[in-house]
């Protein structure tokens, strides 16, 4: 498994995004410590993958953070902490780190690195560094792998999606939809999460 380089729509080529997904992490505490200490070698977004439901979910947060960086509107320290914050349904930055950022209990980890003109980073350097410091198994950054890691109960709690009208609360009229209700439901969940992230706290 290798580091993935991702291009997002509307993000200029000068800002490249690198992503790596790990499972069975053994040294979460150590990594968390580096972040708290502000160790400059660890300028990454370290995300607890159990609260990421899909690639799109993560990409949405990355896009938000990069867009805010380009618009000089960062609310947190840097673009990496901003990615973690951008996952949040509200404006509480500290809470967002606790919910979405790495903690000593983290077992699945999504690492994102944004390379910018002011702080460039090459793919091979990132990969070799991560291989060295992350004690875990690097896997495919794909929807299938992510879904297996997802703690859906936690996700629904964070985004307040625990209501009885159902995730796809369209009711009986929707009998025309195919048997694959689960994939419809998770798509709908994703849509609601994206909306929640977009509004970030500006709800009533």
């Amino acid at each position: 498994m290798a580091l993935e380089c991702i291009n997002l729509e509307h993000v200029p080529a000068s800002h490249t995004i690198h992503a790596a997904l790990f499972q069975n992490i053994k040294n979460a505490s150590f990594l968390h410590q580096q972040l708290l200490a502000g160790n400059t070698e660890f300028e990454y977004a370290l995300i607890d993958a159990s609260v990421i439901i899909s690639r799109l979910h993560a990409l949405a947060a990355i896009y938000r953070a990069v867009n805010d960086l380009l618009g000089n509107k960062l609310r947190s320290r840097n673009v990496h902490s901003e990615i973690v914050f951008s996952l949040s349904p509200n404006n509480n930055i500290a809470e967002s780190f606790r919910r979405f950022g790495i903690s000593p209990e983290t077992t699945s980890l999504l690492v994102i690195k944004v390379s910018t003109p002011s702080s460039p980073a090459a793919g091979e350097d990132i990969q070799s560094h991560l291989s060295k410091v992350v004690d875990g198994e690097q896997v495919d950054f794909s929807d299938g792998v992510l879904r297996a890691m997802t703690d859906m109960v936690r996700v629904k709690k964070i985004y307040k999606l625990n209501y009885s009208s159902g995730v796809n609360g369209r009711g009986k009229e929707n009998a025309v939809y195919g048997s694959d209700r689960t994939s419809q439901d998770s798509k709908e969940l994703e849509m609601l999460i994206l909306g929640s992230m977009a509004l970030r706290g500006a709800t009533n």
């Binding site: 867009n67 159902g166 369209r170 609601l192 909306g195 500006a202």
Partner: peptide, 19 residues
């Protein structure tokens, strides 16, 4: 955006908000 997300959450058929 607020109106759209509220509708979507409650199962009213509207476009979802991305960003």
């Amino acid at each position: 955006a607020r109106v759209l997300t509220k509708c979507r959450r409650e199962g009213v058929p509207v476009p979802g908000v991305y960003a």
